Amino acid sequence: CKPMSYEEKRQLSLDINKLPGEKLGRVVHIIQSREPSLKNSNPDEIEIDFETLKPSTLRELERYVTS
């Protein structure tokens, strides 16, 4: 899986911020299912740190927000 450039992460962040509330739950689910360290975090307060997410997680999020 190809790592994301800074610009791609920035765009992904903007795209996620534009999602309606009902789609954000899926974003949280994708992150929690792929990032063991965030599995028990509160979905309402999850802070997405794009620098610490795996490339595969970032690509999955990218696919979701652009679908």
Rank of each mutant, 00 (worst) to 15 (best):
C1Y: 15
C1I: 05
C1M: 05
K2L: 03
K2W: 07
K2S: 07
K2V: 10
K2E: 13
P3K: 10
P3A: 04
M4F: 03
M4R: 01
S5D: 06
Y6W: 09
E7W: 04
E7S: 08
E8T: 00
E8P: 00
E8H: 02
E8S: 03
E8L: 01
E8N: 06
K9N: 03
K9G: 00
R10A: 07
R10W: 02
R10E: 05
R10C: 10
Q11V: 01
Q11A: 04
Q11N: 10
L12C: 03
S13D: 00
S13K: 14
S13L: 04
S13W: 05
L14A: 13
L14W: 05
D15L: 15
D15W: 11
D15M: 15
D15A: 15
I16N: 02
N17K: 15
N17Y: 07
N17G: 08
N17E: 08
K18V: 03
K18H: 04
K18Y: 02
L19I: 05
L19H: 03
E22G: 08
E22F: 06
E22S: 10
K23V: 13
K23W: 13
L24G: 04
L24E: 01
G25L: 13
R26I: 04
R26E: 15
R26M: 10
R26P: 09
R26N: 12
R26T: 13
V27S: 00
V27T: 03
V27I: 12
V27C: 05
V27A: 08
V27H: 03
V28M: 15
V28A: 09
V28W: 15
V28N: 08
H29Q: 15
H29D: 15
H29R: 14
H29P: 01
I30Q: 03
I30T: 06
I31Q: 00
I31E: 04
I31Y: 01
Q32E: 08
Q32L: 07
Q32W: 02
Q32I: 05
Q32R: 12
Q32V: 03
S33G: 07
S33V: 03
R34H: 14
E35I: 06
E35G: 00
P36A: 09
P36H: 07
S37V: 09
S37P: 06
L38I: 13
K39P: 06
K39Q: 14
N40P: 10
N40S: 10
S41G: 11
N42I: 13
N42S: 11
N42V: 04
N42W: 08
D44F: 08
E45G: 13
E45D: 13
E45Y: 05
E45L: 14
I46R: 12
E47R: 10
E47T: 11
E47Q: 12
I48E: 02
I48W: 07
D49V: 02
D49W: 00
F50A: 08
F50I: 11
F50M: 13
E51C: 03
E51H: 14
T52Q: 13
T52N: 13
T52P: 02
T52L: 12
L53S: 04
K54S: 14
K54Q: 15
P55C: 07
P55T: 12
P55V: 05
P55F: 03
P55G: 08
S56E: 12
S56W: 04
S56L: 02
S56Q: 12
T57W: 01
T57Q: 00
T57H: 01
T57P: 02
T57D: 02
L58I: 06
R59I: 01
E60R: 02
E60Q: 06
L61V: 14
L61S: 07
L61A: 07
E62C: 07
E62S: 13
E62W: 02
E62N: 08
R63N: 11
R63F: 09
R63Q: 05
R63C: 08
R63I: 04
R63K: 14
Y64V: 09
Y64N: 10
Y64L: 05
V65C: 08
V65K: 06
V65W: 08
V65Y: 05
V65M: 10
T66Y: 15
T66S: 14
T66I: 07
T66F: 07
T66W: 10
S67M: 07
S67I: 08
